[in-house]
């Protein structure tokens, strides 16, 4: 194990080296600018897009549209997924009813459904939100159900013998015990939601970061493609950090030694 200081140095050195190599490759024309623009070109394009927008629309409208789609779908998915997961975990009959339908659609990659959803719900908001919702919901539901199952039988019995009613056992014991799994589900679902978002925006519409990427590539504005990618990456990073930060407060007992 390297010392903390040299560890940090290594962590920071590797991206710097990559950047330098990238810059060198473009500077000495090892690659064509249209395939891989220089870092400085991308920086300038980013500044241009931030100040003057893209395709006549402010970049914050593109960002806002994407965020709205992903947040609506994610929040709906969290609510429905947690509820369904709890019900399936608590009631074997409900689980039996849900089992086959959900197991049938689960292995299908959500991207395969995008054309179908566009056919059914058009190219507007509904199909984009629904496709994200459907997949994120599956992930949250399955993790929540696993969380319920993770509560040991003895813990439930102990709580009953301490005087908890069945409702109190659920609300005070089983539900909190399932939270660490729920949080894992939410994180996975969020990452998936962002990637499905971009894919669904690539396929149609004139707003959103996915649209920026696909439109820019159509017109060989490669630097703008990178701008879209960078912005989506930043949003993903910030969203995951925010979720982890909140989750640590809620499941504060996890990892405590």
């Amino acid at each position: 194990m390297p010392s903390p200081r040299s560890h940090l140095a290594l962590v920071l050195a590797s991206p710097l080296m990559l950047l330098l190599a990238w810059d060198g490759a473009t500077r000495f024309s090892l690659v064509e600018q249209i395939l891989l623009p220089a870092p400085a070109t991308i920086g300038a394009a980013l500044w241009d897009v931030l100040t003057r927008g893209y395709a006549g629309v402010s970049v914050f409208v593109h960002i806002g549209t994407s965020l709205w789609r992903v947040l609506t779908a994610f929040l709906l998915a969290a609510f429905v997924g947690v509820s369904l997961g709890l019900l399936r975990g608590l009631y074997p009959r409900i689980d039996a009813v849900c089992l086959v339908p959900f197991e049938l659609i689960r292995p299908i990659p959500p991207l395969a459904f995008i054309p179908l959803f566009i056919l059914w719900f058009g190219i507007g908001e509904v199909s984009k939100v629904l496709i994200i919702f459907y997949y994120a919901m599956l992930v949250v539901m399955l993790n929540t159900q696993a969380g319920v199952a993770s509560c040991p039988e003895d813990k439930i019995r102990a709580a009953r013998s301490l005087g908890a009613s069945p409702w109190q056992v659920f609300w005070r014991v089983v539900f909190p015990a399932s939270l660490p799994h729920v949080v894992v589900g939410l994180r996975v679902a969020l990452a998936a939601a962002l990637s499905i978002l971009v894919a669904s925006e690539l396929l149609g519409g004139d707003r959103g970061l996915g649209f920026v990427i696909s439109d820019a590539s159509t017109f060989f504005k490669t630097a703008d493609v990178f701008v879209g990618i960078v912005l989506i990456g930043l949003i993903g990073l910030i969203a995951d950090r925010a979720l982890t930060f909140t989750a640590r407060r809620i499941v504060h007992w996890e990892g405590k030694t």
Binding site: P152, D154, K155, R157, A158, A159, R160, S161, L162, G163, V173, P176, A177, L179, V251, H252, W253, K256
Partner: peptide, 19 residues
Amino acid sequence: SGPHPDRGIVFQHHTLFPW
């Protein structure tokens, strides 16, 4: 008939609530 706090139970592995 059914559990009651009059009859407390302790298991081999603790069942404390980690939260």
